[in-house]
Write a protein that binds this DNA or RNA. Structure first.
Lengths: 204, 204
DNA sequence: AAGTGGTCTAGACCACTGT
DNA sequence: CAGTGGTCTAGACCACTTC
């Protein structure tokens, strides 16, 4: 148990607002638990919170010192989207853009992108030249979202992904799935598949 | 470009401190970039920041509605630690505790833990009954750290891990590696290996 | 009902950095 | 050098939650 804000302010000779800000940031990082009336306690089970930064892939590659490259593998508009676990709310009869692409670093395969875009929300992407600008970057620059969900997992490369990534079929791949919504409307679902050598790191 | 804090405060009829806090939080979430003298801009390339919560595995299992179980697989003290990529600073001649354990959910394999602990920093763990309390929980409760590093990746299960996780050797596993330091001294390095069905998710 | 954190105000000084 | 954000102060009211 930690003294309340008024007492701490007196003890350290500063204003209560300063104590409040310090404790608020400690609470956000998971070190302490705060509840009104109940007070502030050192967290019984400190939850390590780590912040992952998810940049546009171009920047991810360039940030690692590589030269970015990009190739559009396929592009089609379908009227009945495949089943995607996360998208129960995906409109049943909506037109959907399905794009597959390969991101490269120094000419070598870096990540495979498998993306579905709701054309009800972002119809302008139909006219975009996705051979030049990846759907990833086009969406970041042109469509805003209100919330998203990220799922990290490991999986086995299927034949198509193995071919473009240059690994064996069934080899481990690192997968990042991301769904974004504008309010309750899904905008896009994407799965990025990286070779097993990929590392996603963060500090705490 | 966004107006400066004084102007925004006037525009919205509130105090500058309130504007500052709002913009500070937007900057933390990556939506805007702020620099003194240069001002505040909408981020050119918005970096999605997602916060991963890394709880003790017991809580992770219980939070998913499972009943937690735990089994110590091996425990040994070695004087020359294996090479661990992240631990160049690992003391050359230090005694190190090496623990392997299996975490269970509803009796089924949940994750394999492969951990090395620096006994110079945490000698008391030598006397702990790691058959009862996992090294994970023991360390969280008994040793503080100043910083850590987390690396997420996919890998192939080796024979020993495949056996305890109940998958094929070479099957994809999701790996979380974590290193913690107290100042410049490494405390522990751990690799958690999860079956490919594992999902680590977060919201933005 | 009372104590705690959550938030806001109005004002001040400072640190950094672009010009 | 000047403009911007970064931080702090002293005070106030409020919202929530436990007692």
């Amino acid at each position: 148990m930690i003294p309340n804000e008024v007492d701490l302010a007196e003890e350290f000779g500063c204003a209560r607002a300063t104590v409040n800000r310090a404790l608020r940031e400690l609470a956000r990082s998971g070190v302490i638990d705060r509840r009104r009336k109940a007070g502030t306690r050192v967290a019984l089970n400190p939850v390590r919170r780590a912040t992952l930064e998810i940049p546009v892939i171009r920047q991810e590659v360039e940030g690692r010192g590589g030269t970015y490259g990009y190739a559009l593998l396929s592009r089609e508009i379908v009227s009945s989207p495949a089943d995607m676990s996360d998208l129960a709310a995906w409109p049943e009869d909506a037109h959907v853009l399905h794009v597959r692409a390969l991101h490269l670093s120094d000419g070598r395969p870096y990540a495979h992108e498998d993306r579905w875009v709701n054309l009800e929300v972002a119809p302008e992407i139909e006219g975009a030249d996705l051979g030049e600008v990846s759907a990833n970057e086009w969406l970041v620059r042109n469509v805003s979202y209100s919330r998203g969900r990220i799922v990290l997992s490991a999986g086995a490369a299927d034949a198509r992904i193995a071919e473009v990534l240059g690994c064996e079929s069934g080899a481990p791949v690192f997968q990042i799935e991301r769904t974004t919504w504008l309010h309750e409307t899904p905008i896009t679902w994407v799965r990025l598949s990286y070779p097993a050598s990929h590392r996603l790191s963060t500090s705490i």
